[in-house]
Write a protein that binds this DNA or RNA. Structure first.
Length: 888
RNA sequence: GGACGCGUAGCUCAGCGGGAGAGCACCUCGUUGACAUCGAGGGGGUCACAGGUUCGAUCCCUGUCGCGUCCA
């Protein structure tokens, strides 16, 4: 006998271990099986599972379990990302906490060794958390972006792209993070709106004949100004173009130039030009061949290109000092408050500097072309499709991708410099040295580039590097391209787009045929969860409290992709209850001798009730299958919920009780067998979403009745494929009438406060022959569920009975001794009014000749029927009301 | 400024051309055995607003307002 409840705390770890050790997570070894593969979006190795991971990985697991059960060779390949900056930060912080040396004191090699040490000890956290969620990843294929194979892939890609001139070194402005002292890509820059000022500075003309006023939000950069620009059409300045101003403080003459960049309508129309510290100014500087003076060091402190009294100052201190100097010089014309966007490093949170350095770039604009085309042509589709627009928008305006980082943790750039600065880009140092020897004519020592690659450079290769590339492995042949990628919209640019580019370039095929973009999880009030807001919900805590299945079901049911998910504990609790409900329905079945029958054929059942539930089961199976095949996760979950709770538990089980307790042995046996069959199908359908509970029920019902065709785990059972012919319209109609009769009767009883213990007969006053047959046959069922003594045909409703109408049939409950006439009059009055409203609407519609002429015949017919039914019902209830002496 | 999304019951959301729905919350009633992590019943909505298309609009189109996100 089943326990009263499912106990996730003990069952989940036990079941997971059993699955894992059985090898069920690996794709089946059948060469005829269709492959279905997915790669996990590799979580940062420093990470711990947050609710976004929980959603993303639940959906992946639902899909992979579904496809596995459908008989495919299903591979879900897991792994983690080395996460350059994040990991380096964690270890540096740890060193600091332990009072140890900084990374610089420690030196590169020792520091990197420390990181590996840390990874060995703490890097497995998130992977084990995924196990708690039930993720059926093939752990035997787990990869790490910095492992040997993936590093080889990275080197191969870098060298290849370099030789194809798609990777190059360039000196230009980058986004510099002064906190980490590294370049970062455009995507790692967050634009934040902050309060600031416009300082209006007067720059005196060199000949003393006047001044030009420029405004800036960054006064300190004036120390590096190399021009003042005005618009060529700006008449105020035409005469001044070509002349010079004397730059205050620095006392350097700089030219006044004409350029399209300044907006004549903004401020004075003149702008200061600082080519080394502003992206727009950089472009102007290039056009006019202006000198580029860099006044910062790597920490954004002023360097020796600044006047002596500014050297060594932090940029913000320098800003203050510059403003003070202008004020003292009498050249500060105005200070204007403003709100403007300022770039910040997404990891460090500090203001990012445009900074002139040598970096490595990928010609993303070239690689993007095939990647755009692939989506245009549908080789890869986004679900929901709207995201394609986001993808196109970015890809069509893509900028060169800065891939070098001045960090130590990551893939070291395979580039070596000779004594004269010549660069040798090769996959190994030995090869570089060989090339150097050839070039220089003698063995020549080389110095490897100090930088490492952007973490996303290696993750861009993930769909093929994890399958063994550059080796031509059997996995690569079988599982590339992968089928579906499930990820968040926040990394469409960072990751999806770059995988598309690299996959197409190196494999000549898209990395995945479908990209499902999942929603963003927020807290119950709609705020983005973040540690600083303190509103994070820890998925593991939720798993502890409600079980993994409840959390999984919640996330699945709420994953409607167009909107954010607002998660609340209440909701999870509700779905935990849903699991309990199924558990107890199974328990009920077990207690009532429901067991699999040898050779059971769902198409051959005779009882109306059983024919009905078999049809409902088929409909559900079809709906769930279709939904999951199309990534309609929420739809699948909701179909299952409705079927299991509102159809199977609320009605099938209740209606089956009289049969199971009855004397008709054949009907009883058929019902027992049918219930067992429905439950087995249900467990399969629900398994992808609630793997633990279903697997446990599968195991606990294994011995009930005939052996299953599939004796192993439910997770490896075959997905149900039921013919639509199992649906029996006649059975649907009969059960529909019974359900309505009971529901309506209950409603009437409760509204009129008929005591629950009262057992009046139910009189069928008026009904078609077919209805009478159904109701008579179902009398025991109705008797029990509606708490009536019997169901009896009657000529007329007796005095003082309560009438109600269902599907044109009139019923009466003779409960005169209980009812309050006023309440009954009120009830009937309300019903009549509602019907009158409906009749008015329908009659209006049908009275419209255009409607009758132009609407489809079946719609017109349906409206006619509804009108007739409503009119009949209204007439009957009015008659009853009249007998009660109510006002009609 | 551009793009996308969203405004439906108190809350969270589904529906997306022909009868306004679910869960939760609320109110009433109900425990001799599947389940109180439950059952039965009930109240509650000019489907943001304004136009348009249509025989018919919560649903399609246009505009307005409000909210969110991303990109400049």
């Amino acid at each position: 006998m089943l326990d009263k409840n499912f106990d996730p705390k003990t069952a989940e770890p036990r079941l997971y271990a059993a699955w894992e050790s059985s090898g069920a997570f690996a794709p089946i070894d059948d060469p005829n099986a269709e492959p279905f593969s997915m790669v996990i979006p590799p979580p940062n190795v420093t990470g711990s599972l947050h609710i976004g991971h929980a959603l993303n990985n639940t959906l992946q697991d639902v899909l992979i379990r579904f496809e596995r059960m459908r008989g495919k060779a299903a591979l879900w390949l897991p792994g983690t990302d080395h996460a350059g900056i994040a990991t380096q930060m964690v270890v540096e912080r740890q060193l600091a906490e332990q009072g140890n040396q900084s990374r610089r004191d420690l030196g590169r090699e020792a520091f990197v060794a420390k990181v590996w040490e840390w990874k060995a000890k703490s890097g497995g956290v998130i992977v084990n958390q995924l196990r708690r969620l039930g993720a059926s990843c093939d752990w035997s294929r787990e990869r790490f972006t910095l492992d040997e194979g993936l590093s080889a892939a990275v080197r191969r890609v870098f060298v290849t792209l370099y030789k194809q001139k798609l990777i190059y070194r360039d000196k230009r402005l980058v986004n510099w993070d002064p906190h980490f002292q590294t370049a970062i890509s455009d995507l790692e820059v967050e634009q934040r709106e902050v309060d600031g000022h416009y300082w209006h500075f007067a720059y005196p003309l060199e000949d003393g004949s006047g001044e030009i006023v420029v405004a800036t939000t960054r006064p300190e950069t004036m120390l590096a100004d190399t021009a003042v620009a005005v618009h060529p059409s700006d008449a105020r300045y035409t005469a001044l173009v070509g002349r010079a101003v004397r730059l205050p403080i620095v006392n350097r003459p700089i030219p006044i130039i004409a350029d399209e960049y300044p907006d004549p309508d903004k401020g004075s129309g003149a702008v200061k030009i600082t080519p080394a510290h502003d992206f727009h100014d950089f472009a102007v500087g290039k056009r006019h061949n202006l000198p580029m003076i860099n006044i910062f060091d790597d920490f954004a402190r002023l360097n020796d290109n600044a006047p002596p009294e500014y050297r060594g100052l932090d940029r913000f201190a320098a800003r203050k000092k510059v403003v003070e100097a202008f004020e003292a010089l009498g050249l500060l014309r105005e200070v204007e408050k403003t709100r403007h966007t300022v770039p910040h490093g997404d990891r460090s949170g500090v203001v990012v500097e445009p900074y002139l350095t040598d970096q490595w770039y990928v010609a993303a604009e070239v690689l993007a072309k095939p990647a755009i085309k692939a989506v245009e042509e549908g080789a890869t589709v986004f679900v929901p499709k709207n995201w394609e627009k986001t993808y196109f928008e970015w890809m069509r305006n893509i900028q060169p991708w800065c891939i070098s980082r001045q960090l130590w943790w990551g893939h070291r750039i395979p580039a070596w410099f000779g004594p004269d600065g010549r660069v040798f880009v090769e996959e190994t140092e030995a090869e570089a040295l060989r090339q150097a020897q050839e070039h220089y004519g003698r063995p020549t020592p080389l110095r490897q580039d100090e930088d490492v690659l952007d973490t996303w450079f290696s993750s861009a290769l993930w769909p093929f590097s994890t399958l063994g590339w550059p080796e031509q492995t059997s996995d690569l042949a079988r599982f590339y391209p992968t089928h579906t990628l499930i990820t968040g919209f926040d990394i469409i640019f960072f990751w999806v787009a770059r995988m598309m580019m690299q996959g197409l370039h190196f494999m000549d095929e898209v990395p995945f045929k479908r990209v499902f973009i999942n929603a963003l999880v927020r807290d119950a009030s709609g705020a983005k969860m973040s540690k600083s807001k303190g509103n994070v919900m820890d998925p593991l805590e939720l798993v502890d409290d409600y079980g993994a299945d409840a959390l999984r079901f919640t996330l699945t049911a709420m994953s409607g992709a167009a909107r954010d998910i607002k998660l609340s504990r209440q909701r999870i609790e509700g779905y935990r209850n849903f699991g309990t409900k199924l558990w107890n329905a199974t328990r009920f079945a077990q207690m009532n001798g429901c067991a699999r029958a040898e050779g059971f054929d769902p198409a051959a059942v005779k009882q109306t009730l059983n024919r009905w539930i078999v049809g409902e089961t088929q409909r559900t199976a079809a709906a769930v299958t279709e939904a999951l095949a199309d990534c309609g996760f929420d739809e699948a979950a909701n179909s299952l919920y409705r079927f299991i709770w509102n159809r199977f538990c609320d009605w099938y089980v209740e209606l089956a009780k009289p049969i199971l307790n009855g004397a008709d042995e054949a009907a009883k046996a058929e019902t027992q067998a049918t219930a067992a069959w429905v439950l087995d199908v249900t467990l399969k359908l629900l398994h992808p979403v609630m793997p633990f509970l279903t697997e446990e029920l599968w195991a606990q019902t294994a011995d009930l009745g005939a052996a299953r065709a599939h004796t192993g785990f439910l997770m490896t059972a075959r997905w149900p494929d039921l013919p639509a012919s199992l649906v029996d319209a006649a059975a649907d109609a009969e059960i529909g009438l019974i359900i309505e009769t009971i529901s309506e009767g209950r409603s009437v009883r409760q509204e009129l406060n008929v005591p629950p213990a009262a057992r009046p007969p139910l009189l069928v006053v008026e009904a078609s022959a077919a209805q009478r047959a159904v109701l008579t046959a179902a009398a025991p069922l109705i008797g029990q569920l509606l708490r009536v003594s019997e169901v009896r045909l009657a000529e007329a409703a007796p005095e003082g009975s309560i009438p109600y109408v269902v599907e044109g049939a009139t019923f009466a409950l003779p409960v005169a001794e209980y009812i309050d006439l006023a309440a009954e009059r009120a009830r009937l009055g309300k019903e009549v009014a509602a019907l009158a409203g409906e009749i008015g609407k329908l009659a209006g519609k049908l009275g419209n000749p255009d409607f009758v002429a132009r609407a489809p015949e079946e719609v017109v017919e349906e409206n006619r029927e509804r009108l007739a039914e409503a009119e009949a019902a209204k007439a009957k209830l009015e008659a009853a009301l009249g007998r009660l002496g109510g006002v009609v």
